[in-house]
Design a protein around this nucleic acid. Structure first.
Lengths: 219, 219
DNA sequence: GTCTATAAATAGATAGAC
DNA sequence: GTCTATCTATTTATAGAC
């Protein structure tokens, strides 16, 4: 019973530790998305997570390491999801649709994702470690794989994957990151801006990507 | 001669003041693009401009006011250029091409523009004053004007301007803001990324925007 | 207009008790 | 694992001499 009690206590402490670690990650994601890496404050993160500030250094070592962990989680999840979309035996057109949908789903599920991605791009990827860089290139490679398949099947024109990539993630990131800004523009007198839904954007990007790939000739 | 001398001195001082003011604006644009508003430091801006730090407060009043001035300049210039593209009697298709080209030209001419725009979006437009908000909506309105013209002429399908807007500025901003990141990805083993040129991107975005607007039916 | 010096607040990080 | 207290550096901003 003494042993069982000790084990139970240990389990409880471990669970509490894991929970406070997770609370810090969640609070940090919000803080960094809102204020950026430099603008984010460990004091505010600790306060929002209702965890002592020293725990940030206990769990992660530094503000930069905490930030990198968030980046890693984020890009790993995206890379995984779009990788699933690229594999399998579905038609190339359906894979493009799945790629777009997976990216948008991931961007929507993690509201901090689009703003942090934008900021990281603006900073030239200053905080990206090799693992995260690997996930980023994984996204591009998955798309390149779909494009090659489609080309070999005679259904897609050869287009540089970077252009298709930019045409997909650019609008989607922009849409999700600009939610609050669109609200302000609508109130400032630009009509019909708030009526666009997530599904509208996904459908539009899917359609545009596909007709671009089909490669109908234009003068 | 005494009067002429005084006037000449005054002119020289004014010119020097205007020059140091301009130097501060240039240095601040680089600093804010690289590190963001919160991460940017007035000390570093003053040092880079080789101007005394106190002059920032003399000329602009505060770090925030200096930042807002940069935003105003930037969005005014863009709004003006795309406004020119939207006016006139050219065919709607050519106006779309001109819109895309004007936006890309402006983004390229001011390297700080894409990263600052991205950061400002991520921040929900926290630093946008009414004038700048007006310029932003002006860009959207110019595009909406072209789309309406094209629709009335029976050449464009009706599509929400926000979707077309995101499909144009998303990829272009992404391309210019990610220059250094693309270099790192290329070195990390993603081939064919550095070969894409400004003209490739502009041509691709023009083509994609137009075939989307022509509205060929897809299942 | 330009400078020096400095105020006042806040930042990231750590030592050490429990 | 968690806490308090604190160190040091850096931040924006200003007062006042010239």
């Amino acid at each position: 019973m003494a042993v069982g009690g000790t084990a139970r206590v240990r389990r409880t402490q471990e669970a509490r530790s894991a929970r406070s670690r997770q609370r810090l990650l969640t609070a940090a994601a919000v803080e960094f998305a809102t204020r950026g890496f430099a603008g984010g404050s460990v004091d505010r993160i600790a306060r929002a997570a209702r965890v002592n500030k020293a725990m940030i250094y206990y769990h992660f070592g530094s503000k930069a390491a905490l930030y990198r962990e968030i980046l890693r989680d984020m890009f790993e999840a995206v890379s995984l999801r779009v990788g699933e979309a690229a594999r399998g035996t579905a038609a190339p057109e359906d894979k493009i649709r799945a790629f777009v949908d997976a990216f948008a789903t991931e961007a929507e599920a993690r509201p901090h994702f689009p703003p942090i991605w934008f900021r990281e791009i603006a900073e030239g990827g200053a905080h990206l470690d090799p693992a995260t860089l690997g996930s980023m290139s994984g996204v591009l490679k998955s798309l390149g794989h779909i494009l090659r398949e489609g080309h070999h099947a005679g259904r897609f024109q050869p287009i540089n994957p970077l252009l298709v990539h930019a045409g997909i993630i650019g609008p989607i990131l922009l849409f999700f990151a600009s939610a609050s800004l669109r609200g302000r523009l609508e109130r400032a007198g630009v009509p019909g801006i708030a009526t666009v839904s997530r599904d509208d954007v996904v459908a539009h990007v899917q359609r545009v990507a596909l007709i671009a790939l089909e490669g109908r000739r234009r003068k």
